[in-house]
Design a binder for these strands. Structure first.
Length: 887
DNA sequence: GTACTCACG
DNA sequence: ACGTACGTGAGTACA
């Protein structure tokens, strides 16, 4: 068998791996708070190269430390390098463990770099007749390429490799591999921090080497060069050139205490890898282990199910007893329009699968599902309820929802895919939908119907198996009431709101569309005239060029990729360039046109002229809802133009009206409650204008009349800032004041509201000690970054620790209000229907005759949702459209 | 798929 | 010294 040696530059590949998944740094944290992104990507790389090269021998070389024979020669070698981020260095020891699991030797050598180990072993292996593949992120190693040795350099992350054979090196540099060191000697290397020859870069170096072959060749023939700046530099930097070349040269005779025989691949030790993956929380690698797979396959093979038919369904339904697990499959995402493809019902170990959804119409089955005395275990009760409802089937008695429970236990465990979610809980026996149905355009039912049936049975089994696990966790977290009394029943309230939908005046939207378009056309022509040419105004790239290059306007702010053209920037330019103000107008109108006019028209249901949004109940980190397809929680209100969109939101019929109620300052009231601050509480108890009251305190005013509108505005920003987890910089940006000024405001605020200050300090401490923060109703958010060494990550976690209990408790409160509201409407036998929730407000439609009743009832219910140390305040209004909602 | 921008609380 | 306000969704451009 041909011997084949794989040599990996451990540090360099780990470095690449770390930055390949750098944007995911927060998502790759194990249960001990260890970052794992580099380990994960390194593992992926290992799988790729082992599969590609199928080596018989392998070695991963690491750097031993900072000091090497190179730093002895040149003290500043690699001197300018930033310190390795701690999030990466903490991962390096675990890479060795991973390699042990893979049966691959790792090695480091004092005073030498990984390069030298690799160079030495490559030469030895070559001499012994091996084929050698080197994997590294560092192009310098291409100097080692020969006919037997290929240097594979990572490109874009770590999974794509560029293979440098001598021929490829020549293609790239027009040099022999051994001349790479001469090139480095001449051009230097900024990342390794050695100089080379002044003003000589890669291009010049290559030109010289093509003529003279090597650094030595150049200096031997220096006299033959005609006089030039370059010649002067070469003469002056002679010593540097030779030093740089020697630094770039990989030592292929390092005293490596390894024999080739010691590098034989031992094969994976799956038991070790299993432990390692458990420690790292790597579910996907774990699931690829054959010991895991065979266990999973055995369990899946043991999974028994029967197929429901028209003949057996009634008898089977009749004998099912509480609790039953039920799952309705709809492949399409949007359950308001999705077709139902099949379902499964049963209990532990006995599953009945149907791919014919008409069987749901069987009276015995319908009755069972609608019977609240028979407990149901499901995954995503809202989706199931709506799907069934569209088939004329009622669902009641749900006592467990895997999706909801998982979200409450940890807001990060919130995949909508049952298979993925189960995996997050270490449960492996159910495939992901993507694996079974595919994705994108090719998504569909498997050709083999039994694959589909098995998948449904496996889902039911997973729900049933995980039910006790999740219930235990909820109980341990003191979250049973939150689950059973709040989120589960709320799902049905939300489902009813989604199903009810909100009626849209299509003619109104079209009328607005025409008006906006006319104004847009005028502005577009004006902008083209001002710019001196036509361009795509929607492209921030093109716009940046026009403003800052063609028109030479001052650059206020940059983004990662170029010039920022955000509102703040354009506002600042308004005074010197009228085009800025036209672009702002254009942006405003074009946003309305695309997102709100055409966007909403696209999602109006053709049959009922209504919009049925979908609320995501398990998405946000704070407990708020989110709204999609379309988002009805961000319909314009602040600007007059945008606000008109609300004229298109109308009640279901002529003699009905829209009614809305909102909590006033709910977050500040929550803050007053949980901080226990006497001064803040007093302000609310006395019914003061809270922003004016804060203004009096931070500006030291004696009389309410002394508060100017500007003082109130600034105090309002301070109040908001406190809720967001304040910083002087953030406040100064928001108010356009100096950082010092902002700092004074904050100090004054904390002096006046000392218990708020104490709260912000205490909650951060709590987060550090227990790793999470909680809302009034025990909703929990984990904050692993609270311990981060990185200042930014840690600061962010600290602000989140302050904000989440406030925002989250406010979310809890309105959820309770919604539950009570639904009951009250039924108890009062009102036709009024709750339609929308926008974080601190509820929107209803009702017969005009019921509006006075609602004006009384809704604030009462919202007030009574929770009893805080301060009173609640609820504002209401009604009108013919959402736009017209006024007191 | 990511970046940018902007709508809401 | 570090570089920010908290929580969302959608449209467009561009690679």
């Amino acid at each position: 068998m041909n011997k084949h040696l794989l040599l990996v530059d451990g540090n360099s590949v780990a470095f690449r791996a770390f930055f390949a998944l750098h944007s995911q740094l927060n998502r790759f944290v194990n249960h001990d708070g260890l970052h794992t992104n580099a380990i994960y990507a390194f593992n992926t790389m290992l799988d790729v190269v082992l599969d590609q090269f199928k080596p018989t021998h392998a070695l991963v070389a690491f750097d031993a430390g900072k000091t090497t024979f190179r730093t002895e020669k040149f003290a500043d070698y690699k001197g300018q390098r930033d310190k390795t981020p701690t999030e990466l260095s903490e991962q390096l020891p675990h890479l060795r463990e991973l390699l042990v699991g893979y049966g691959i030797k790792s090695y480091e050598l004092k005073n030498y770099e990984a390069d030298d180990i690799i160079g030495t072993m490559a030469r030895q292996a070559e001499a012994a007749g091996f084929k050698v593949d080197i994997v590294t992120g560092d192009r310098d190693l291409t100097q080692l390429a020969t006919d037997q040795v290929t240097v594979n350099v990572t490109v874009k992350g770590v999974n794509t490799l560029e293979a440098y054979t001598p021929a490829h090196v020549f293609e790239k540099y027009e040099l022999e591999p051994k001349q790479i060191i001469d090139m480095k000697g001449l051009a230097g290397d900024t990342s390794d921090n050695y100089p080379g020859v002044t003003k000589v870069g890669e291009k010049t170096a290559i030109k010289l080497l093509k003529q003279f072959g090597s650094v030595e060749g150049i200096y031997d023939n220096l006299d033959s060069l005609k006089a030039s700046k370059m010649k002067e530099h070469l003469q002056a930097d002679r010593e540097q050139a030779f030093l740089s070349k020697s630094l770039a040269t990989i030592n292929t005779n390092a005293p490596v205490a390894l024999t080739l025989d010691a590098l034989v691949c031992q094969g994976k030790d799956e038991t070790k890898l299993l432990d390692f993956y458990d420690a790292m929380d790597f579910q996907s690698f774990k699931s690829k282990l054959s010991i895991v797979n065979s266990a999973v396959q055995a369990q899946q093979a043991a999974l028994k199910y029967d197929v429901l038919t028209a003949d057996n369904v009634a008898a089977i339904a009749a004998q099912l007893t509480s609790p039953v697990t039920f799952y309705l499959e709809m492949l399409a995402d949007n359950y308001h329009t999705a077709e139902s493809n099949g379902f499964v019902i049963g209990h532990q170990g006995t599953w009945y699968v149907a791919t014919d959804t008409a069987l749901l119409q069987t009276p015995a089955l319908k009755q069972l599902l609608a019977d609240s005395a028979i407990e149901k275990y499901v995954f995503d009760v809202k989706r199931t309820y709506v799907g069934l409802q569209r088939l004329g089937v009622s669902l009641a008695g749900t006592t467990f929802d895997l999706l909801l429970a998982s979200y409450l236990v940890d807001t990060n465990d919130n995949s909508n895919d049952l298979g993925k979610l189960a995996l997050l809980h270490g449960y492996q026996n159910v495939a992901t939908d993507e694996a079974v149905y595919g994705k994108g355009a090719s998504k569909g039912l498997p050709e083999d119907i039994t694959v589909f049936e098995k998948h449904l049975a496996a889902k039911a089994q997973a729900i049933s198996d995980l039910q006790p696990v999740l219930m235990k966790k909820l109980q341990d977290n003191d979250q049973l009431a939150l689950f059973t009394e709040m989120e589960l029943p709320l799902a049905l309230v939300l489902a009813d709101m989604e199903i009810a939908g909100v009626k849209i005046d299509i003619d109104k939207l079209n009328e607005l569309k025409g008006q906006f378009q006319q104004r847009l056309d005028t502005i577009i022509q004006k902008i083209y005239a001002e710019a001196g040419k036509e361009f795509n105004i929607n492209s921030s790239q093109q716009l940046g060029k026009i403003l800052f290059e063609d028109m030479k306007l001052p650059v206020i702010k940059r983004t990662k990729t170029g010039y920022s053209t955000a509102v703040g920037v354009l506002e600042a330019l308004k005074g010197i360039a009228p085009i800025a103000s036209d672009i702002l107008d254009y942006r405003g109108l074009s946003k309305l046109q695309s997102t709100y006019i055409t966007g909403l028209l696209k999602v109006v249901h053709p049959e009922d002229q209504k919009i049925h949004t979908t609320y995501l109940q398990t998405l946000t980190q704070t407990g708020r809802l989110s709204s999609i397809e379309p988002n009805l929680q961000n319909i314009p209100v602040r600007d007059q133009d945008g606000r008109q969109i609300r004229q298109a939101f109308i009640p279901r019929s002529e003699d009905w009206a829209i009614f809305a109620a909102d909590y006033s300052q709910i977050e500040l009231r929550v803050l007053a409650h949980i901080s226990g601050d006497q001064n803040l509480q007093a302000a609310f108890k006395e019914g003061l204008d809270i922003h004016a009251s804060t203004a009096m305190r931070i500006f030291g005013l004696a009389q309410p009349e002394d508060v100017t509108p500007n003082m109130r505005r600034e105090a309002k920003a301070v109040n908001f800032g406190i809720v967001y987890g304040i910083s002087d910089y953030g406040l100064s940006q928001n108010l356009g004041i100096s950082r010092a000024q902002a700092k004074t405001y904050i100090e004054n605020y904390f002096r006046e509201y000392p218990q708020v200050k104490a709260y912000t300090e205490a909650i951060v401490k709590t987060a550090r000690e227990q790793g999470y923060v909680e809302t009034l109703f025990h909703r929990r958010r984990y904050l692993p970054d609270i311990h981060a060494k990185n200042f930014n990550l840690r600061s962010f976690a600290e602000r989140t620790a302050m904000n989440t209990p406030i925002q989250g408790s406010a979310a809890d409160i309105i959820k309770v209000a919604m539950l009570h509201m639904q009951h009250a409407l039924a108890a009062e036998k009102l036709q009024a229907t709750m339609l929308l929730q926008v974080h601190d407000e509820l929107i209803f439609e009702a017969p005009k005759t019921e509006i006075p009743i609602l004006a009384q009832l809704v604030p009462e219910v919202m007030d009574a949702a929770v009893s805080l140390a301060v009173p609640m305040k609820v504002g209401t209004g009604s009108g013919a459209t959402w736009y017209n909602v006024k007191d």
